[in-house]
């Protein structure tokens, strides 16, 4: 076991891909840093918080990016975003077998707010350009900072999302919601509630992620490879039929669960016998116990 959560961005990407295969683009030695942080007396990072490059996954040619949660929470600034956009564009030119995005981010970097917002939008369009070229984009979420803000939207533009049980995927952070509407609306210190609401298990049950994995880089590697293999046969292109199906699913979700106030009530409504037991289950046991009960499966 090698913890995904505890590894840094570079360790994750090296261990995820075939041993020795990763070659970094614009590495820290190139010193391409944010042009904005110095003005705010904020330390810069020589990779602007994201590691990008090429490598192999089970022998297949991939491009990959890994956000560093330890630098400004993995937030997206001008350079950080441009590295992701460049990587996604390059995937189309190089016709790789997949793009793997290891996302750990709070979304837009507030220190360069306007540039970050435009950059996230450019990443979103670049992900969809890559898919339109029939190259699958696979998102991995397993870092301590989760995947939030605009990048939580970007993740849902990919072909697949793989999460650990510790991972979180959402839009606004609980602290932001609590600050805006009070602790009664969302108690950000209630860890269990935060995880029930934004965690990998809830997202899996709703159908917003494709797998819940143990906190192990090798488990992510295996799942990413299996997901990539599916797209050797299936098209990665987003179609109108797929969007119509997503629309029907999201409409049904709103009808079925829109009046509920607690994630566990959703799990009960899905027909799960002992919903209170789910948060304590290991990833594999969780997947077994909920088989056939995810939204849309019955």
């Amino acid at each position: 076991m090698s913890s995904y959560l505890e590894a840094n961005a570079r360790q994750r990407i090296h261990q995820l891909l075939d041993a020795g295969s990763f070659e970094e683009f614009l590495p820290p030695s190139a010193r391409i840093v944010s042009p904005h942080l110095a003005q705010l007396d904020t330390p810069a990072s020589f990779d602007d918080g994201v590691v990008i490059g090429s490598g192999r996954l089970i022998g297949k040619s991939v491009l990959a990016a890994s956000q560093e949660g330890g630098f400004m929470g993995g937030a997206v600034g001008e350079v950080h975003g441009a590295k992701l956009v460049g990587l996604l564009k390059r995937a189309v030119i190089d016709q790789v077998d997949a793009v793997i995005l290891l996302l750990e981010t709070g979304g837009v970097r507030l220190h360069e707010a306007n540039a970050g917002l435009i950059a996230v939008s450019e990443v979103m369009r670049a992900v969809l350009d890559t898919r339109a070229a029939n190259i699958p984009v696979i998102v991995l979420v397993g870092g301590a900072n989760g995947c939030f803000g605009g990048m939580g939207i970007v993740a849902c533009c990919a072909n697949a999302i793989l999460m650990s049980e510790e991972a979180r995927l959402a839009m606004s952070g609980p602290e932001v919601i609590e600050t805006t509407h009070g602790v009664e609306e969302f108690d950000s210190r209630d860890r269990a509630l935060v995880w029930r609401t934004t965690g990998g298990k809830h997202r899996y049950l709703l159908g917003d992620c494709d797998a819940v994995l143990p906190d192990d880089i090798n488990a992510f590697r295996k799942a990413a490879a299996e997901t990539m293999a599916r797209y050797q046969q299936n098209s990665a292109v987003l179609t109108l039929d797929e969007l119509e199906a997503e629309h029907a699913m999201l409409s049904k979700r709103l009808r079925d669960f829109g009046k509920l106030g607690e994630p566990m009530d959703i799990w009960t409504r899905l027909g799960i016998a002992e919903p209170a037991s789910l948060p304590m289950l290991e990833a594999d046991a969780f997947t077994q116990q909920t088989a056939g009960f995810r939204a849309g499966e019955r």
């Binding site: 939207i153 970007v154 993740a155 849902c156 995927l169 919601i177 609401t197 917003d208 994630p263 959703i266």
Partner: peptide, 10 residues
């Protein structure tokens, strides 16, 4: 957030 607003916006 519980309903997955990021998925709806995406």
């Amino acid at each position: 957030e519980m309903l997955g607003i990021n998925r709806y916006m995406a």
